[in-house]
Design a protein around this nucleic acid. Structure first.
Lengths: 125, 125
DNA sequence: CAGCAGCATCGACCCGCCTGCATATCAGCA
DNA sequence: TGCTGATATGCAGGCGGGTCGATGCTGCTG
């Protein structure tokens, strides 16, 4: 636990080597696997989708428990994992805790998976 | 096991709902989570990277055991999971089994994660 | 201040998975 | 045919993770 930082930030900033080019390093593989592990769960994917498609792009736990069919502690558990992975951000307003997507988090993961293609190669232009 | 089909194919063809727009369905979430689960492992990420960066874009088990530092059965196990997920394809030539990336498999996953952006919307061009 | 509602945390159970060892299978070769 | 080497499979141990019930914590309200 005590690891409440954003795992994604560690990948985004020091530019983790994407799944392309030369063989990926062991440490990079573990970091990327960690974030992917947060995504690789049906309940968490549905949570992300529900939050993203919610009225203001945000939702509190009480709104998510019913659609998922999971207990409130379990939902909080998943939200915690997604938050620690850097995919969600939490804002507490009054008694409610509102979660929303971190803007470019998922897109960043997608970019790490896809090879050069058209993005990374246009650096020294 | 007997489930040797490609999980990715089930997503690509009937066009699984991406992680955007309206809330994702439970079945779609499970399929997508299944493929992501195959990716969410350091050893498998390194395997994909090693194979992709190999001379001919292909590699046999004996070439992958040493770099990973895992036993041969374990490497075969991971290759099997990646193959069943639709990320790798296997070709047996003589005594060796050569693995190579399924061309657009990973890119497909990346597209499923990222919202509209520029791809899906430019169909009628 | 007492009561209540929304969330987070804890403890526990159970299942799935990563790993290695042992073994089976199969192709090439003497 | 029998042997050797490259892979795949079976089996078992150990650990991590998903789930829930119970509980603690914190604002809001009467």
């Amino acid at each position: 636990m005590e690891y409440v930082g954003t795992a994604l930030a560690e990948m985004t900033m020091p530019q983790i080597s994407p799944l392309a080019g030369e063989p990926i390093e062991r440490a990079d593989a573990e970091r990327l696997a960690g974030v992917l592990k947060a995504l690789a769960d049906p309940a968490r994917l549905r949570l992300l989708s529900l939050i993203q498609s919610a009225p203001e792009g945000e939702a509190c736990v009480c709104d998510l428990t019913a659609p998922l069919g999971l207990s409130q502690p379990t939902v909080s558990h998943h939200l915690r994992i997604l938050t620690e992975a850097g995919l969600l951000e939490r804002e507490k307003r009054g008694v409610w805790a509102y979660y929303r997507l971190v803007p470019t988090a998922i897109a960043t993961i997608a970019d790490l998976l896809t090879p050069p293609r058209k993005r990374a190669t246009k650096k020294a232009r």
